[in-house]
């Protein structure tokens, strides 16, 4: 084997090893969700087993789990809808107007990406308690906007900037006002960016745990909170836990694959394009 072939082999081997590393925890979760209790508690763990869907049947019949998934759906889609409604006009303004204080506004939007949720969770808990909003969808939707809105504003501003100004100038000649231009030109032409930002907003709201953990108790508990709630007691229902985990992770994985080309942009607020 000459050095070039050797290098090619090492290249392939490395790629394959990393692929295994990346997919293993995911694979292990799905595999464990299909094992029966005996196989789950086998020591050392078994790799060949007869798959069973009993844990999926179990969570299907468990109102707590289905309720939590419905809560997650309600919260994540309402947050996304609101973030797009409120964020796109702001993005239009940032993309097309010059005004004082624009830089400070940017700074503020971007710092929202970095702030620890615990900073807001404490006061929001106290405020929601006073307002009687604890354990409601509304409080989660509002607080999730604190990280979804900046993402939508950032990605859409970027997208709107790439729309050529000529189209807009032509529209101005036809006496269109800014609202018309935003509504008839920017929204339709910026649709790809809006879709990407909406998907990010959905993924982040769907995955969130800390706020949901402290702000909900029973009625509005989301799926990640339920998944965590099994973790007490002596004999853990691992099959049920992993089945719930799989059900939670599958939709976001699908969405993430849809926006895989934009993943870095969404996670860095555009620092590297």
């Amino acid at each position: 084997m000459n050095p070039r072939q050797l290098r090619r082999a090492v290249h392939l081997l490395f790629l394959a090893a990393f692929l295994l590393f990346t997919l293993f925890p995911f694979f292990w979760m799905v595999a464990s969700s299909l094992k029966d209790q005996t196989d789950l508690l086998a020591s050392p763990p078994v790799w060949a087993f007869t798959p069973t869907f009993v844990h999926y049947a179990e969570i299907w019949q468990d109102d707590e789990v289905s309720g939590a998934i419905i809560n997650s759906l309600i919260v994540a889609s309402s947050t996304t809808l609101l973030a797009v409604l409120l964020g796109t006009p702001a993005a239009y303004s940032l993309a097309r107007f010059q005004f004082r204080g624009k830089k400070d506004l940017w700074f503020w939007f971007i710092s929202n990406r970095m702030i620890s949720p615990i900073v807001l969770a404490l006061p929001v808990y106290l405020l929601a308690q006073r307002a009687g909003l604890l354990d409601t969808h509304l409080v989660l939707i509002l607080i999730y906007l604190s990280f979804c809105l900046p993402i939508v504003v950032w990605i859409c501003t970027d997208q709107f900037r790439s729309i050529p100004g000529d189209i807009e100038q032509a529209a101005r000649l036809d006496n269109a006002n800014h609202w018309d231009i935003f509504w008839r030109i920017y929204l339709p032409l910026g649709l790809p960016g809006i879709a990407v930002s909406a998907i990010f907003s959905f993924i982040f709201s769907w995955n969130e745990l800390l706020y949901a953990l402290v702000l909900t108790r029973s009625d509005a508990r989301t799926a990640p909170v339920i998944a965590t709630s099994y973790m007490s007691g002596y004999e853990l229902p691992w099959g049920k836990i992993m089945a719930t985990g799989t059900v939670i992770v599958l939709p976001v994985t699908f969405f993430a694959l849809l926006v895989s080309r934009h993943m870095v942009r969404g996670l860095t607020m555009g620092a590297s394009k």
């Binding site: 790629l15 990393f18 692929l19 990346t22 997919l23 925890p25 995911f26 292990w28 979760m29 464990s32 993924i203 769907w206 995955n207 745990l209 990640p224 998944a227 965590t228 973790m231 691992w238 836990i241 992993m242 985990g245 939670i248 992770v249 976001v252 994985t253 969405f255 993430a256 694959l257 895989s260 993943m263 996670l267």
Partner: peptide, 23 residues
Amino acid sequence: VRVSLVVPLATTYAVVGLIGRLI
């Protein structure tokens, strides 16, 4: 491999912890 990179990034952080507890 490139596509598989987004799988960990999108996995619900809480579920990552649960998988870790099992592993």
